[in-house]
Design a protein around this nucleic acid. Sequence first.
DNA 1: GTTTCATGTAACTTACTTAGTTACGAATCT
DNA 2: AGATTCGTAACTAAGTAAGTTACATGAAAC
Lengths: 139, 139
Amino acid sequence: MHILVHMTETREHALTSEQLATFIHTNPVVVRRTIAGLRDAGIVTSARGHGGGWQLGRAPEKISLAEISAALGETLLPFSNEPESPGCLVEQAVIAALDDFRIEAERLLAEKLSRITLADLAADFRRRYELIGVTSHAV
Amino acid sequence: MHILVHMTETREHALTSEQLATFIHTNPVVVRRTIAGLRDAGIVTSARGHGGGWQLGRAPEKISLAEISAALGETLLPFSNEPESPGCLVEQAVIAALDDFRIEAERLLAEKLSRITLADLAADFRRRYELIGVTSHAV
DNA sequence: GTTTCATGTAACTTACTTAGTTACGAATCT
DNA sequence: AGATTCGTAACTAAGTAAGTTACATGAAAC
C-alpha cells in the first residue's frame, strides 16, 4: 500500500524499484518480487531499461483494495480449511461448520475492501500532507 | 477446535494431554502449551495427578468460537496496524484509512464467531458420526 | 508416606517461512 | 555501444512455530 500511494502521487513518471525500496526501507529485489503479482494483475506496469520503472496500470479510482489483496495472494482470514487428518470425522465437522462462517466472512471482507480504492488512500494522504507540510514528510 | 470437540464428547471424564495429543498427532507438551490460554480463560480446566487431565470448564453451549479465538490469542484478521516507519505520512494515511475497515471487520467477525458455540460443532460431528458409523471414526 | 500419574514450564533442537543479498541475463533508451 | 532497469535464480540470515527432553509440582491411590 505504501508503495502504491507513492506511485499514485507521482503518476506522471515511473519509479524504479530502487526508489520504491528506499520508501519502505528495503531492497529493490524484494520490491520487484513482492509487486510482481500486482503487475500480473495489471494493477501496475513495469518497464525495463533506461527511464523504466513502475507506474500504476490504471487510474487509482479503479484500483480497489480487494484487487490488490487478491493480486498479492493475501488471505483475508488467518486460518485455512485444509484438513490435517483426512478421514477424521471430528475434523471434517469442524471444517464444515466453520466453512459457512469462512465463506460469508470472506465475502463480507472482500465486499468491504472492494469499496476502498487506492484513490481514497491517496486522498487521505494528501489531506494530511497539506495539513502538516512538506517538511514533515519523512520517507 | 478438534481437541475441544473431543472434550465435549467425553464430558464425564478428563482427557490427558497425552490422549489429546494423539487425536491431533502431536506432542503432549505442545497441547498443554497451546490450550494453556483456554484454561486461563476458564474454557477448560486442568487437574494434576492421578486421574487428572483436561475437561470443559462449562457447558459447550456457553462456549463461543469468539471466546476460544480470543483465549488463544488469535487475531481475526491477517494484518496489523503497527506502523513500521513512524513519522511517515503515507504510512499514517494508509493505517488510518484501513483502521475504519479493520475495526468494523473485526467487530463483524467477532459477532459472527460469538454466535457459533462448541455445542454446534459437536452436534455437527455427532450427526456425521451417526450417519457413517463408529468404524470410520479414525482418530 | 511412598508410589504413581499428570500438569507446568523451562530449555533446547529442528523445521519452515520470509526477508535480504548477490549475481547476471534480458530488454530498452540514448 | 553503453548505461540503465527489470526478471529471476540462488544463496544467506533471521525470525517463528513445532517438537522434544527434562524435571519440578501437585494430587490421588495404596
